[in-house]
Amino acid sequence: MSVLVYVENAEGKFKKSIFEAVSYAKTIATQLNTSLTAISIGDVASAELENLGKYGASKVLNVNNEKLKSFINQAYASVIAEAAKKENANVVVLSNSFSGKGLAPRIGVKLDAAVISGAIELPNTDGGSFTIKRTAFSSKAFATVEVTAENKVISLTPNSYKVVEDGGSANVEVFTSENKDSDFKTIIKEIVRATDKVSLPDAELVVSAGRGLKGPENWGMIEELANLLGAATACSKPVSDADWRPHSEHVGQTGIAISPNLYIAIGISGAIQHLAGVSSSKVIVVINKDPEAPFFKVADYGIVGDAFEVVPKLIEAVKSLKANS
């Protein structure tokens, strides 16, 4: 028995959400009295791989060949499932990233495993049972799932588990897989990545704005505030529906659900569908000129005021905070 964690890289580097997944998987391994192995697919420097030991991986399987250089769902799932079998792993952990969402179910089927997606806490293994908490109803609720299957595939919601750094260096081993040709039917033609922006699903801080901004031309101050804070930008559904902002920024029930440490909502009234996507944020700040806006009911901090007056002052305040620290 062992625990396997898949460490997804973004252009050869690991993001914080991956260190969270490794730390989380390590704690599960300790709960189950076993060790943690990580598997990396793609071109990652060995120093980066050894560094995973710091978060608790004792061994790293390195799969680096030309055919598996870019993410192909089917092929990656085969490799990870094969590694899980060889390592005798009955728990596989992934980050619930866009790629993780595509992988976890396929790995689950290959291993006859139960798939728990969007886990937000460690499993409870008291008395031989295995229960785990995840979000449900688009973050309006939590569900505790009891797993009866022997094998488990768990995808961890980013920003829901703390990075723990108390390990050493991991042993890196080359791992070769036997993919079948049918694993490679999809072809990636192009990857477009905005490198100058913080990606929304991973963001610890998010500045979001709604219809109160009146038009796309007024987003300059939102972007400036976000840049100063190192935050990602987001928006409400009416804003993306009106094409003021891209759909990828839409948070809420039919957009994406996020759980940053800080969510600043500017000119968003707080419809129940919007709240669903952001209610697991740790701190919520609402700026709205309508004191009756429902968003204030679920906020930690608020300012009743006009965004066009308040936001420029916030920008100045962040600048002076940065200058003094």
Binding site: K101, G102, P105, R106, S117, S138
Partner: peptide
């Protein structure tokens, strides 16, 4: 939008 598992499509593929 109820259970949000996002699992059925990839499971079907497999």
């Amino acid at each position: 939008i109820d259970y949000n598992g996002a699992q059925v499509t990839a499971m079907l593929g497999e």
